[in-house]
Computed example of a mutant assay.
Amino acid sequence: MSDSFIAIDWGSTNLRAWRYEHGECVDSVQSEAGVTRLEGRSPRQVFTELMARWQEPLPVVMAGMVGSNAGWLQVPYLPCPTRLTQVAKRLTEVKQVLPLKAWIVPGICVERADNCNVMRGEETQLIGAYAELPATLYVMPGTHSKWVQMEGDTLVDFRTVMTGELHHLLLNHSLIGVGLTEQRPDPQAFTQGLEAGLDEEHLVCRLFETRAAHVLGKLEKSAVSDWLSGLLIGNEVAQMQRKYPLPTGAALTVIGNPKLGERYAQALNLAGIRHRMLDGDRAFQSGIRSIVNELED
């Protein structure tokens, strides 16, 4: 199976799949059939429809929210600290699709008095990222950003920051978004927001200023989204820099969508934090290949 298989990243809102034959990606598909957007279908039905795209069946390895209590099968978490090499040893087989071979990758959790956290899907990206760009700290931007602390190949701790979701909620379901015009990109407003977020220890004190600034004409109504995005990302970076300080001269690795990653890169540059970038899809596919290779051993 090591060179021919199907990899699936099945999250809450999207599903992405890649078909590998003899080590080469020969086809891929992306849809909005995430586990929260099945439109009355079961995960098994969506899976069957996807497999019908390819006449010749191959073994399938899936990761993400498909293994959550809202997904297909609830796959147990591996507790921190955990070595990345242990993930491949704890896959859960999906027996409803026999004779086709399919497995779901486990998530990872932290369960302590000072930190309760879970991840699903990111562990697969981390496996691929560690193989390509080893680091003591990884940043995974997104709706729920992850900051992951490593010791060698062992994941020892991580935190989740709801920056993306908070931006959406504030802009669309709070007073901040009332009376706005169509939002347009505004790099200057974004940078100003970053600077404010990086300098503020208590973010709650600055949120209402987002509304006050555009009401008083100090901020263009069309630039509120970019200002708020900068404020939130800047403050996230400032808080996590204090939580997970890097050793002198070390660089963290940012894993994710290049467009969103660039926003974080701007914040990291302003904060004086060295960093490297890695595309999230590349990291995921590399991680799945490592898991598949472990299955063969």
Results as ranks from 00 to 15, higher is better:
138 Y>L: 08
54 W>R: 08
88 A>E: 06
184 R>A: 13
248 T>N: 10
214 H>M: 10
259 K>N: 10
17 A>K: 07
183 Q>S: 15
38 L>K: 02
169 L>H: 10
24 E>T: 14
201 E>V: 12
225 S>E: 12
296 E>T: 14
64 G>H: 07
211 R>H: 09
253 T>C: 15
130 Y>Q: 15
223 A>G: 05
290 S>W: 05
286 S>P: 06
125 Q>H: 00
4 S>L: 02
241 Q>L: 03
192 Q>T: 14
163 T>C: 04
202 H>Y: 15
281 D>N: 14
291 I>F: 04
266 Q>L: 13
283 A>V: 11
292 V>G: 04
210 T>G: 02
82 T>R: 13
97 V>C: 11
263 R>F: 07
174 S>H: 05
152 G>F: 07
89 K>T: 13
19 R>C: 01
284 F>R: 09
149 Q>I: 09
17 A>W: 03
94 V>D: 11
211 R>F: 08
153 D>W: 06
41 R>K: 15
82 T>Y: 00
295 L>T: 10
222 S>H: 08
43 P>Y: 08
163 T>S: 13
297 D>F: 02
285 Q>I: 09
101 K>W: 01
194 L>I: 13
7 A>V: 09
103 W>A: 03
118 V>Q: 05
71 G>S: 01
137 L>S: 01
183 Q>F: 02
63 A>C: 15
35 V>R: 02
225 S>M: 02
273 I>V: 15
98 L>F: 09
252 L>C: 12
286 S>T: 14
69 N>I: 00
239 Q>P: 01
142 G>H: 04
201 E>S: 14
156 V>A: 02
290 S>Y: 02
146 K>D: 04
89 K>E: 14
86 Q>R: 15
279 D>H: 01
296 E>Y: 11
276 R>K: 14
252 L>I: 10
80 C>V: 15
222 S>E: 12
268 L>V: 13
137 L>G: 01
30 Q>P: 00
120 R>I: 09
178 V>M: 12
216 L>G: 04
197 G>K: 07
1 M>P: 11
27 D>A: 15
234 G>C: 11
150 M>S: 07
183 Q>I: 04
180 L>V: 12
163 T>A: 04
77 Y>A: 06
143 T>K: 07
121 G>N: 05
103 W>N: 06
179 G>V: 11
26 V>G: 02
1 M>T: 13
219 L>C: 03
81 P>D: 08
125 Q>V: 08
224 V>N: 05
